[in-house]
Amino acid sequence: MLKRPEKNEYPDYYVPYVDLVPEDGLLQLLKENLQKTVSLFDNISEEEGLHCYAPGKWSIKEVLGHITDTERIMSYRLLRVARGDQTPLAGFNENDYVQAAQTNNLSLKTILEDFKATRNATISLIQNIPAQAWENTGNANGMAITTRAIAYIIAGHQMHHCKIVEERYLKK
C-alpha cells in the first residue's frame, strides 16, 4: 500500500498539496477526483469559462489547462524518478505555460477531454509502478523528491485548484 510521503521527501512549497491528500487510497482518490473534476467543469458555460475572479488572475479555462499541464509534467517526473533516473529535471514557469497554451481559444469541452486523457494516463502509470520504486529519490527543479511524493503532489495540486474554482470563480 502506498503511504503518505514524509516531509523530507519533497520541497516545502509542496506541503499544501500533500496535506490535502488523505493518508490512504491515493489511486482511488485520483479516480474519484477525475469524475469530480469532470462534473465541476462540465457544468460551466463557455462564457463562464473565460471568467477571472480578479484582474491578473487566470480564467477558468486557463486554470483547467494549468492543472492538465502540471499533471503532465509531474507524471513525467514520476516516471523518471520511479525508473531510477538520476538526471536532474528542469523546473517550469507556470505563468509562461498558461500564456503559451492559449486555452482561452479552446472550447471548455476540449480542455476537459485533455484533462481526462492526462488523468487516465497518470492513473495507468501509478497502477503499474513496482512497489520498490515508490521510495526512489530523484532531482526536480534542483530539489530532492521521491516517487510517492510526486504522486501525492499530483493529487493535491488538482484538489487545490478545483477548490479555488469552486470558492473564487463559481461562488454566487
Rank of each mutant, 00 (worst) to 15 (best):
E71S: 07
A101T: 03
E113I: 04
K36S: 11
G25L: 09
G56D: 11
Q132P: 00
L27K: 10
L108D: 07
L112V: 01
Q35N: 10
K116S: 08
R148I: 09
I73D: 03
Q28N: 13
Q102S: 13
V81G: 03
H66M: 05
D85W: 03
G65S: 14
E46H: 06
A101I: 00
T103W: 13
H51A: 00
A100P: 03
N136Y: 09
L64N: 05
D12W: 00
S39D: 15
V81S: 02
V15F: 13
L27N: 02
T70Q: 04
T137F: 07
E94L: 03
T147Y: 08
I73Y: 02
L112C: 05
Y97S: 07
L106S: 14
I73T: 12
Y53K: 00
A90V: 07
H51E: 00
N33G: 01
Y14Q: 09
Q102K: 15
A133H: 14
E32G: 04
D85Q: 07
A149H: 08
A140R: 01
D96W: 00
V18H: 10
T147P: 10
C52I: 00
G142E: 08
V21Q: 06
L108I: 09
G49I: 01
Y10P: 09
K109T: 14
A101P: 01
I150M: 12
R148L: 08
E71V: 05
S45T: 12
G138L: 11
L26D: 08
Q99G: 00
I111F: 00
N136W: 10
D19Q: 14
T146L: 11
S59R: 04
Y10E: 12
G91A: 14
Y53L: 03
L125M: 15
E23S: 11
T122M: 03
I129F: 11
L27F: 02
L40E: 06
L40K: 06
A140L: 01
A144F: 02
K61H: 01
T70E: 05
N95D: 15
L27S: 07
E113S: 15
E94G: 08
I145G: 06
K57N: 05
H66R: 08
L112M: 09
R80D: 00
Q132S: 13
C52T: 12
Q28K: 15
G25C: 11
A54T: 02
N8R: 08
A54K: 13
Y97V: 15
E9L: 08
S124Q: 13
F92C: 10
E62N: 09
N105K: 14
L79A: 10
L50C: 03
N8V: 02
D69A: 06
L34V: 00
N120T: 10
E113Y: 02
S107M: 05
N120F: 11
T70M: 06
A90I: 01
A131I: 05
R119H: 09
L125C: 11
A117G: 13
A117S: 14
S107D: 11
L112S: 06
R148E: 12
G91P: 02
R77T: 09
N93P: 00
L79H: 09
D24K: 15
I111W: 01
